[in-house]
Simulated assay, not measured.
Amino acid sequence: MNELETLRAAVRNELELLWGDLERARERALNGEWSMQCDFLVERIKDLTRLVGPTPWDCVGPLLLEDGTYQRVHAELGIEAPVDMVAIARHRAGDAERYRRR
């Protein structure tokens, strides 16, 4: 891997981590919805996404996919980032079933 590929991989990894940070910031937001921290993280996500493209949807927490945050961020950048909502629903249903069996 050359230096440019290494840098791109590092940026992609950072983007994935930022999406996780955003999901946690949403959970901790005073109103449970959004905060200034969320705004800050979205701007960082946008900056890095402009450099390397979108983080794959399956690397982002389901909350940010289900509420449209992931889609909105990419739409604001003019970047297509389709999400397989059927796969997400199946995953959630599987989680609910495993929880129910406990």
Rank of each mutant, 00 (worst) to 15 (best):
L22S: 03
L48T: 05
N31H: 05
R28S: 04
Q37V: 13
A25R: 05
K46N: 00
G20A: 10
E43M: 10
R24A: 02
E23P: 00
E33M: 07
G32H: 07
R26K: 15
D21T: 04
E23A: 06
E23M: 13
D47H: 13
T49K: 02
E43C: 09
R24G: 01
D39G: 07
L48M: 10
G20T: 07
F40W: 10
S35G: 06
W19I: 10
L51F: 02
R24E: 05
D39F: 06
A25D: 08
L48I: 08
E33S: 06
L51R: 10
A25C: 08
L48Q: 10
C38F: 01
F40A: 10
G20D: 12
W19Y: 08
T49N: 07
L51N: 00
D21V: 07
D21I: 04
F40H: 14
W34E: 11
R28T: 06
Q37Y: 00
L51K: 03
E43Q: 15
E33F: 06
L48P: 01
R24Q: 09
F40T: 13
V42F: 10
I45R: 07
E33I: 15
D39Y: 13
E33Y: 09
D39T: 15
M36W: 03
L41V: 01
W19D: 11
F40G: 02
G20V: 05
E23V: 11
M36L: 10
R50M: 13
Q37P: 00
R50D: 02
T49Q: 05
A29D: 11
R24H: 02
A29C: 06
T49I: 01
R24M: 07
W19G: 06
F40K: 05
E23F: 01
L51D: 00
C38P: 01
L48H: 12
L22W: 01
L51V: 05
L30E: 14
F40Y: 12
E43T: 11
L30I: 08
E27Q: 14
G32A: 12
D47R: 15
T49A: 15
R26S: 02
R50S: 04
E33G: 03
L22M: 02
L48S: 09
T49W: 01
E33Q: 13
T49L: 03
L51Y: 00
L22H: 00
T49P: 01
G20H: 15
V42L: 12
E43G: 04
F40C: 03
A29G: 04
D39E: 11
F40S: 13
L30A: 11
W34P: 08
W19H: 12
E23N: 14
V52A: 03
D47M: 12
E27W: 09
L48R: 15
V52Y: 09
E23W: 00
R28Y: 08
G32W: 11
A29M: 14
E33A: 08
E27T: 10
E23S: 09
K46E: 14
D21A: 08
Q37C: 02
K46A: 06
W19E: 13
R44T: 03
T49R: 04
F40D: 07
D39A: 13
C38A: 12
R50W: 00
R44E: 09
L22P: 00
T49M: 06
G32R: 13
D47A: 13
W19K: 12
